[in-house]
Simulated assay, not measured.
Amino acid sequence: MPYPKEETTLILFKPDCVRKNLSGAVLKRFLDEGFRIRGIKMMQLTEEVLREHYAHIIDLVIDGKPLFPKLSTFMTSSPVVALALSGPGVIVRVRELLGPTNSQKADKGTIRGDFGTDSMMNICHASDSPESADAELHRFFKEGELFTCCMD
């Protein structure tokens, strides 16, 4: 069976990951899978970036309350770490390592199952398709911030 195609994905280490000082432990799990870092930086997100990033759920209402204001408050509560990772089939593989979005439904041994709290405080965001990875990488990394110098 041929190896999956080489891809690059975006992962955001959310404020709960950063505040709990779990960034190193989570990064190690990804690197232990053989993925390569193409870019990494800490940044403070703005509401403007979040509106673009979460445009697909901006009008979502849960239990009679709009989700975005709570999500925006959480995502701007501390800096996040933006990570661009490359590897064969990295998009699917990263999402498998993370586990389901709702940490309460994630198995132990997955990143969210081990460290997450719920659907919002779930340690990381990860791109869910090649198309979203491309858009998200351009959203969080400027021209010249992604590198291929260390790739085999």
Rank of each mutant, 00 (worst) to 15 (best):
M1W: 08
M1Y: 02
Y3H: 00
E6Y: 03
E6W: 05
E7T: 05
E7F: 02
T9A: 04
L10K: 03
L10C: 09
I11P: 02
K14Y: 00
C17H: 04
V18P: 09
R19T: 15
N21F: 10
G24C: 06
K28P: 00
R29N: 11
F30C: 00
F30M: 01
D32F: 04
D32M: 06
D32S: 15
F35N: 00
F35S: 02
R36P: 01
I37G: 07
R38C: 10
R38I: 04
G39E: 06
G39V: 07
M42I: 11
L45I: 06
E48R: 13
E48V: 05
L50Q: 08
E52F: 08
E52G: 10
H53A: 00
Y54Q: 08
I57P: 09
I58A: 10
L60S: 06
L60M: 14
D63E: 13
D63C: 10
G64I: 07
K65Y: 13
K65I: 13
L67K: 11
F68H: 10
P69I: 14
K70I: 12
L71H: 09
S72N: 14
T73A: 15
T73K: 14
T76V: 08
T76I: 05
S77N: 11
S77G: 13
S78M: 03
V80S: 09
V80D: 06
V80P: 00
V81F: 00
A82T: 03
A84G: 12
S86L: 04
G87S: 08
G87F: 09
G89L: 01
V90E: 01
I91F: 02
R93N: 00
R93C: 01
R95I: 04
E96A: 12
L98P: 04
G99L: 07
G99H: 05
Q104I: 06
Q104P: 04
K105A: 15
A106I: 12
D107T: 09
G109A: 07
T110H: 06
I111V: 14
R112Y: 14
G113Y: 08
T117K: 05
T117C: 03
D118N: 15
D118A: 10
M120G: 15
N122D: 09
I123D: 01
S127N: 09
S129H: 05
A133D: 08
A133M: 09
D134W: 02
E136Y: 07
E136V: 11
H138F: 10
H138D: 13
R139H: 12
F141S: 02
F141R: 03
F141K: 02
F141E: 02
F141A: 05
K142W: 08
E143Y: 13
G144D: 13
G144A: 11
E145V: 15
L146H: 10
C150L: 00
D152Q: 01
D152E: 12
